[in-house]
Write a protein that binds this DNA or RNA. Structure first.
Ligand code: FES
Ligand code: FES
Lengths: 149, 149
DNA sequence: AATACATGTAACTTTAAAAGTTTCATGTAT
DNA sequence: ATACATGAAACTTTTAAAGTTACATGTATT
């Protein structure tokens, strides 16, 4: 099962965007994430649809933050990326009349719902500006303002 | 991403095994789960390695419970199946020196670890005998003792 | 001993969704 | 007109569970 690294990637990118003057192009973000510009556009499109970023076409265009980092939580980005299940664990659906399958699935689902609720609650408590601690120091010591290594 | 339905399937099978007189063959379990005997053997092998079931080769052989259902928790079976990650969410590993990637991954990992801890705690609180409620009634009303529909 | 049955295991193919890629249309600043 | 950048369609690749095929090994019955 391939892991979904979109949340991790988008958070990284959003925070770097906050330190830039102009728009960030998909090309530069792709280089930073060691991936393809189309993957960046595809994923960023979800965030644009929810109003967290804006995109501008053409010369000098690119992506910019539309909302301050302090107003965006991990939960916001997680939900913007779609409501796919957070768990690799799935429930069977072969004997919907079987009381054992029903009881088993109920027990697993109950535990998963509680765990997911806690996960989302934790995501909700973290705004993106809280993740920038120590960046200024690092930037001065190691490399230029560009997020590209 | 394909879901891992092994936990759900194995729990269903184990509880049905408790209602049988003799051993259950991989063939019958496969029919019950709408799958292949080899898939059953492969998955059951994990439970045998941890001592929850026993297998007997040859004529009249098959699988039997080695421990009472009241002594097995969802957590036991979950862990017996291997320690693969419970989440579809993955962390990036492209800029291990970047303080932002570090902070982002730390925040996501922290939330996931708390959520997983809660999930496993819930799994630990449910023994398999608690999932059999109402099965006797159902069995009498709907079909023969065989777990095969 | 022969047979039927059942597990054990190796070596594949299939599946689903994110990720990756190629290609071209559209829009915009210089 | 040109260079730059997003938008989007139409693919291929990747990963681990699931599924499949084939055969060796072991065991109860006859
Ligand atoms: S398959 Fe569970 S009761 Fe028939
Ligand atoms: S890529 Fe995050 S600081 Fe350079």
């Amino acid at each position: 099962m391939r892991k979904d690294s979109r949340l991790s990637r988008m958070l990284h990118v959003l925070i770097h965007m906050d330190h830039l003057d102009g728009p960030a192009t998909s090309e530069k973000m792709a280089t930073m994430l060691s991936t393809n510009p189309v993957v960046v556009r595809r994923t960023m499109a979800h965030l644009r649809d929810q109003g967290y970023v804006a995109s501008v076409k053409g010369h000098g265009g690119g992506w910019t933050l539309a909302v301050p980092l302090s107003n965006i939580t991990l939960l916001d980005i997680h939900q913007a990326l779609g409501d796919s299940s957070v768990f690799t664990i799935g429930l069977t659906d072969e004997h919907t009349n079987c009381p054992i399958e029903i009881a088993v699935n109920l027990a697993i689902r109950d535990a998963m719902e509680q765990a997911e609720a806690l996960l989302l609650e934790r995501f909700k408590q973290v705004t993106l500006d809280k993740l920038t601690a120590g960046f200024a120091d690092f930037q001065a010591e190691h490399h230029e303002p560009s997020p590209v290594e």
